[in-house]
């Protein structure tokens, strides 16, 4: 990592308090999250780690407003997400969250420009502005000459850059990346991580969900999950982002 500069974190953006999530699987109830509390401020670069089955994906779905908790409270920029209906959640996702997926999830038959325009379509932006903004963001991620390429005409790294451009285009509060390098070779993966670093330096808030330690080390703060609880959280820089003591004790107790 070229620069390990830690930027000053801003006000609290995500405030999760004691959320749980239960799934019914046949006759069994699976407690994916057993009471997680977490605060994320703007301008943070945070990695959520944990083995499979730790509740990492479930937490990511909660953070990304793709799902609502069974119990507990989730506030996003002061708005209570836990009580929102599907369409309100869709609006939050559209405006506040930029998703980056492991499998890129680009529309296969649409060119880069059209793919990046997609969130703006759902935001109801007029076609000219849309085009202009999508082209600019693609320029920013180094794909200014690939606007009319379809995903199958692009390399894996380029596809992920298109996906990142798509995540950025509606100027979201956070970028939520789920194993963004999982389908890439390590060299390309490092390039993508460099891009995230760059975005962080430019003031974006990034949440990275991964099980790879050498990817997670790019983040400034790491949260470890195990069995649906937070096992550790090193977000103790500048006295911000630290969990309340009792939560840490509880997490320790489950080890």
């Amino acid at each position: 990592m070229s620069s390990n500069h830690v930027r000053q974190a801003g006000p609290i953006m995500i405030d999760i308090e004691n959320i749980t999530k239960d799934y019914v699987m046949g006759e069994e109830i699976v407690h994916a999250l057993r009471g997680v509390s977490l605060q994320i401020r703007s301008n943070e670069y945070i990695a959520v780690m944990g083995p499979s089955g730790s509740g990492k994906s479930t937490l990511m779905n909660m953070l990304g407003c793709l799902d609502t908790p069974t119990s507990g409270r989730y506030e996003f920029n002061g708005r209570n997400v836990s009580a929102m209906n599907d369409d309100e959640l869709a609006a939050i996702r559209n405006r506040e969250i930029g998703f980056v997926f492991q499998t890129f999830n680009l529309l296969p038959r649409a060119d880069s420009l059209r793919n990046v325009e997609l969130p703006l379509i759902y935001a109801g932006i007029d076609p000219e502005t849309r085009r202009e903004r999508a082209a600019r963001v693609l320029q920013d991620v180094g794909l200014g000459d690939r606007l009319d390429h379809k995903p199958n005409e692009l390399s894996g790294g380029q596809r992920q850059r298109v996906a990142i451009a798509r995540a950025l285009v509606n100027d979201p509060s956070i970028i939520l990346a789920d194993e963004p390098t999982g389908n890439l070779d390590s060299k390309t993966g490092e390039e993508i991580m460099a891009l995230f670093e760059n975005l962080y330096q430019r003031g974006h808030t990034i949440i990275l969900v991964t099980h790879e330690a050498n990817i997670a080390r790019h983040a400034r703060r790491t949260v470890h999950l195990r069995d649906g609880l937070i096992e550790s959280d090193d977000g103790d820089f500048g006295g911000i982002g630290i969990l309340p003591m009792e939560d840490r004790l509880e997490a320790d107790a489950t080890l």
Partner: peptide, 16 residues
């Protein structure tokens, strides 16, 4: 289905 999931993640509402 995955495309629909992606579209929803990007903010497509039910009606859309």
């Amino acid at each position: 289905t995955r495309e629909i999931g992606t579209r929803k993640a990007l903010g497509a509402r039910r009606r859309t």
